[in-house]
Design a protein around this nucleic acid. Sequence first.
DNA 1: GTCGGACTTTGAAATGTTTCAGAGAACGTG
DNA 2: CACGTTCTCTGAAACATTTCAAAGTCCGAC
Lengths: 349, 349
Amino acid sequence: MLNGRTPSVKDVAAAAGVSLGTVSNVMNRPEVVSARTRERVERAMTELGFVRNESARQLRAGTSRTLAYVMLDGTNPFFHDVAQGIELAAEDADLSLFICNSNSRASREEVHLDRLLQQRVQGILITPVDPAAPHLDELSRRGVPLVVVDRVRGVDNCCSVAVDDVLGGRIAVEHLAEQGHERVAFIGGPDSLGQVKERLQGAREIWSSLGRSPDDLIYLPTDAMTVADGRSAGERLAGLPARRRPTAAFCANDLLALGLLQQSIGAGLRVPDDLAIVGFDDIEFAAAAAVPLTSVRQPRQELGRAAAQLVLDEATNPDHKHSQLQFTPELVARASTVSRASFSGAPRR
Amino acid sequence: MLNGRTPSVKDVAAAAGVSLGTVSNVMNRPEVVSARTRERVERAMTELGFVRNESARQLRAGTSRTLAYVMLDGTNPFFHDVAQGIELAAEDADLSLFICNSNSRASREEVHLDRLLQQRVQGILITPVDPAAPHLDELSRRGVPLVVVDRVRGVDNCCSVAVDDVLGGRIAVEHLAEQGHERVAFIGGPDSLGQVKERLQGAREIWSSLGRSPDDLIYLPTDAMTVADGRSAGERLAGLPARRRPTAAFCANDLLALGLLQQSIGAGLRVPDDLAIVGFDDIEFAAAAAVPLTSVRQPRQELGRAAAQLVLDEATNPDHKHSQLQFTPELVARASTVSRASFSGAPRR
DNA sequence: GTCGGACTTTGAAATGTTTCAGAGAACGTG
DNA sequence: CACGTTCTCTGAAACATTTCAAAGTCCGAC
């Protein structure tokens, strides 16, 4: 009867001697069907190896069971931690998570979004290449629940979850100042990135409020935020005349910091004695570096989890209000800024 | 007419003054429709903001446009590189990639597979928790194209793509022997893992073929393959009596090696002079470590790409033959085994 | 004019679910 | 025994697309 096809509800119904509707009820509202028939239907299902066709389900029911996250950069573990947080929340809500990666290319991002629209996913979480991109407005206009993660949009026509980057910049530089550094580099770029801009702004604010001269906070721009960029920033740092050379660097993310760390040690500098380094994000590998990295910690999983909850609220709650969640970053001091001698106690985690 | 609904083919047809079938043709076989109507239909589509409903398409057409990868451990960048390779191949074939993460838990793996079955994905790539698990056979029996990545199944009822782990173990230990080490540790576990078993086997083979005593190749088992396990292995290493203490360690993956490296440096050892370290996988962070890590390189992206091609072949080619692809690993020597003095030339890549 | 062929377009069937109004059955109550 | 309730189950409609046989239309050739 089946001749090779994968069995459908109809086949199960026939095998169990009941109607289509009953089989559907067994799957969706088991409480309305009597124990005896339910059992019969269930036996038929396993005997036939029935697997519900999700496309048909979705088509009829009009609602999909998946969320999607479009991440910005698959090579940065930070985003995987965020994804992990989203996945946990999705699991709780019994949804699947579709993970895409735009690799910082706007065109890939658009392709992914288009496909997700076609799939009619329940909601989209995204760390966009450009938070101001018009295709994001397009999504809101279409009514797709949308949450921007780790960025903020100028407009407030969608939810967002981020960290207070200005504050992050402040605490990083404040920490360096406390350690007695009088000349500090800020490494990051391109400065079109909101995050870079804000972290730098925070750094400048605290620096001047401590009465230091702006000339002693040196901005070393990078093309991107990868390990390689960190390494090349290190070379530029080493090339500065000794008088101008900073004794500490604040990197806009951990990848940069790790690259800088590697380059510096390779060049024979002692970290933190010759050069202290602070990163941002506190990814797993920050603590695992040979000189464990001081970093500004973002609650990575929490970010993802909160974003997922917002998107679910927008998807299910008819009087959802857009909100812009902001988490507070936290300094995690480790050996890359605090020399062994003066180190008191274990690093905070 | 639309009153809020998202527009369907029917609406487009009405707006363009043509029939349903014609709109479908415009999307699927544009060559059969005249330029004039095609243009009219296309204009109607953009005006209405039409987005094709993938569920309905799939239901009717019977074929999905997505591949899936179930990765083993989201915290290991290795798997993300594999995923990246798969994604590239999928992109070429104009397919989407669904990424799932089992986090080394068999139960999560089963949940994911079940969902993917429901979605009727075109094919599944997986790095399984247990390559012998019966639910994998189940998939083959159902006729879902399946490729096992970075593992091999005992049975050859599906394709697999992996690296010659025995050879990997040989070249790692051969390299250490060449550097003059006479007592070497192998760190990895649990040894129920095929990979651990084979890498250790390779290590032992070459060691004895060099005429060394088995007693001088010390197996330090770990519970898992994380950075933390590497660190604790370092502590155990340091605890050995000086006579028995190895001068070099071969770790079954880079995460272990990184943990060991960190612990060793923290304990005041010089790497490679007091302890040389070789990892496995050659993840991005291996090269970026403060003491760049010598590692056995797997062609990570290639692995993914090849796996994707196999699964596509199985999905589309009626006389597909299962094959077990095996790549050849390659040693990348860096500073963690070759001290600066004796280092000649740039590291091979 | 009419015929044949090439090119376009149409309309209905089919895909595998869910939903829902209503049909039956079973049962206690008056 | 008629009636209302409660509990199960049924069958048809609906979802948005693709497919395909068949119907139209156009055009040049005879």
